[in-house]
C-alpha cells in the first residue's frame, strides 16, 4: 500500500470466530470490534488462542467459522487485500538473516511501494544499525526490526502479538511512541498474556473468560 497524503480510515470487526487444530478447540466463538484510533487488547493465558486470533485477522489463517470484516475508507477488503493492509508483529515472524536491516526494509519497502527513505528513518528512530545482518541482531533488536517492518508501509491496521517481548526500556519507549503515532490515524489489536500498560486501550478481550 503506497504512502498517501490522507491517512486511510480503518475498521475491523470479527464475529463468532472458531478455529480448532485437530480435536483441540482454540478459538470458541470470539467476537470484537475496533475502529481507527482505538486499541483492542487481547489477553489470556498461554495457548488460549491469542496468536491464532491475530493470524486469522491478518489473513494468514482461515477461521473454520465466523466472519472477519475489515473496511478501509468504507470499502470492505477481501482476505488478499487485508494482508497488505495490516502490519504484523509476531514471535513467529523473522526477516532475512542474511540481509542487513536496511536491505530487509528496502526489499519489503519495494514490494509494498513505500518511500525508499522510510526504512532508514525507521531504523534511526528505533536505534538500529543500518548495515548489520539481521542474523547478528540481539533478540531485542530483532523485535525492534519486526516493529519497523510492521509500520514500514503505514498500514491502517496493526496486529501485534506480544510486541514488547525482549525489549529493554529504551526499546519499549521507542516502540510505544511509534504505536501512539500509529493510533492517531490507524487501529491496533495487541495480544499479550499480561495486561500491558499500553496507551489508548479502548477495549479488552479476555480469551480466558
Amino acid at each position: 500500500m503506497p504512502d498517501s497524503a490522507a491517512p486511510p480510515h480503518a475498521e475491523l470487526a470479527f464475529a463468532d470466530l472458531r478455529r480448532s487444530f485437530g480435536r483441540l478447540r482454540v478459538l470458541r466463538g470470539v467476537s470484537g470490534r475496533v475502529a481507527a484510533g482505538e486499541l483492542l487488547l487481547v489477553s489470556g493465558s498461554n495457548g488460549c488462542g491469542k496468536s491464532t486470533l491475530l493470524r486469522c485477522l491478518a489473513g494468514l489463517m482461515a477461521p473454520q467459522r465466523g466472519t472477519i470484516e475489515c473496511r478501509v475508507d468504507g470499502t470492505a477488503l477481501d482476505v488478499a487485500e487485508r494482508r497488505y493492509a495490516v502490519g504484523f508483529v509476531s514471535p513467529d515472524l523473522e526477516l532475512y538473516p542474511e540481509l542487513t536491516t536496511l536491505e530487509n526494509l528496502d526489499f519489503f519497502g519495494r514490494l509494498r511501494g513505500t518511500d525508499p527513505r522510510r526504512g532508514a528513518e525507521l531504523l534511526d528512530r528505533l536505534g538500529l544499525p543500518h548495515d548489520r545482518a539481521a542474523a547478528a541482531l540481539s533478540s531485542g533488536m530483532r523485535q525492534r526490526l519486526r516493529f519497523a517492518w510492521a509500520v514500514l508501509h503505514r498500514p491502517p491496521v496493526l496486529l501485534l502479538d506480544e510486541p514488547l517481548q525482549n525489549l529493554d526500556e529504551p526499546g519499549r519507549v521507542d516502540v510505544l511512541e511509534l504505536l501512539r503515532e500509529h493510533l492517531e490515524t490507524g487501529l491496533a489489536v495487541v495480544a499479550s498474556p499480561d495486561l500491558l500498560d499500553l496507551p489508548h486501550v479502548t477495549s479488552h478481550l479476555d480469551l480466558d473468560s
Binding site: 494468514l60 497488505y84 504484523f88 513467529d92 515472524l93 523473522e94 514490494l111
Partner: peptide, 12 residues
C-alpha cells in the same frame, strides 16, 4: 524454515 514466509505472505 527461516520463518520469513509470513513477512513475504503479507508483502508480495
Amino acid at each position: 524454515e527461516a520463518k520469513t514466509a509470513i513477512a513475504l505472505r503479507l508483502s508480495a
